[in-house]
Design a protein around this nucleic acid. Structure first.
Lengths: 215, 215
DNA sequence: CGTACGATGTTACTAGCGGTAACCCGCAGT
DNA sequence: ACTGCGGGTTACCGCTAGTAACATCGTACG
């Protein structure tokens, strides 16, 4: 049937158009941060708004499509760091470093990914309590949990432990990384070392200050 | 001088009005989440928009004033947890629990505090890279860093270590808490224990899974 | 060949937002 | 009586996300 063939070709061209639009959107997001307007994106792509809406539905759709790429890229980087056949400590440090390198080298993208500007469809479905964190962080946490479950022998209930740790560690990376990116109080290597130390239990190991009552 | 007395009384009445407006705003934020509009808040207070702007300057000002209360309250709670004269592990658990209890019992407030909806004044002052995280998290991180510096003997460069750990731990609480609040995979006590285990170096201590090559 | 369809594109609009200018009113102090 | 000022209002601006209606070109099908 020629019809299917034609529709196939059409499909490929629309896919290509979609990619072009995404690239234009990316340029604008890179320039304007997370509050790039649809008008600006359309202008950058040389067209007008309704086309964007035909392709992506709404702003959330465009942002989701755009976020997916970077999220995938970052996850791939982290996966290789997590799979390196070295000591566990080195793997953890490599993972931390990969994340921090990503947010350091493309901070605008990072801000965009973390700050979805409420691109949600809820708000009618009862109260949608607590739906705040970025999808990227959730995915990262789940991926890390999988790796932990695969690699470590956590005994009974270990799956829950792995998920708690996964999301906790990702949150730690995010929080510390965000602060570090803003204040730049030290080099990336230093930060990685300090965070790995924290995960290695140094908080519990170091001594109390002299003079304070012993806890 | 009657003038000063009068202006003093005027001051107190405007302060009172301000408090009333803040309470109305709080009611609306509690109801509508972080994207409560100025119109809605003004309507709830029985007045119209310009008065809000006279009192708070702009939306960011209102939100900052509103956030300050809750932030202070939460910080006070955490401070008492951090100051309890018990074992370090118990103090850490009490702090984690205090934070999680807060976000659990008032999730709308929590969302509001974490999601500032870009109430910033930057955007002209060059690129303001990385200014994303909520002020609450920054304050928490710094407070925790202070406590760590005060209590622990971290040797040279310890101040930097304390700040990294402070923001890292706060990020961990935030990330894990956000995920937990959304999925409710376990009780609060369980979550607290798991996170404390993580901070106590269990990630480094547990054995590799059998079958995998020893790292 | 004509035609109907589908994708691309436009202009012009709605509804609502944050924010502001101009004006009104009542009440204290001189 | 007049002036100043804080509380309050209406009416507006410029912006945003999102949409409806219309025009256009290419291509498969009778």
């Amino acid at each position: 049937m020629e019809r299917t063939e034609r529709s196939g070709r059409q499909h490929s061209t629309t896919e290509r158009r979609r990619r072009e639009l995404l690239e234009a959107a990316e340029r604008i997001v890179l320039r304007d941060g997370p509050d790039a307007s649809m008008n600006a994106i359309a202008a950058e792509a040389g067209i007008t708004k309704p086309i964007l809406y035909r392709h992506f539905g709404d702003k959330g759709g465009l942002y989701r499509a755009l976020a997916l790429r970077h999220t995938d890229a970052l996850l791939a980087n982290l996966a290789t760091a997590l799979d390196a056949p070295v000591l566990r400590r080195d793997r953890v440090e490599a993972t931390l470093d990969a994340y921090l390198l990503a947010i350091e080298s493309q901070p605008q993208v990072y801000r965009f990914l973390m700050h979805p500007s409420d691109g949600d469809t809820a708000s009618e479905t009862g109260f949608d309590v607590g739906r705040h964190s970025a999808p990227l962080l959730r995915r990262l946490g789940e991926e890390l949990a999988k790796v932990i479950t695969d690699r470590l022998d956590l005994g009974p209930g270990g799956e829950l432990t792995a998920r708690v740790w996964g999301h906790g560690i990702v949150g730690m990376m995010h929080g510390a990384g965000d602060w570090w990116l803003r204040e730049r109080p030290c080099t990336r290597e230093q930060l990685v070392t300090q965070l790995a130390d924290l995960l290695w239990g140094q908080l519990a190991a170091v001594a109390d200050r002299e003079g304070g009552p012993g806890f």
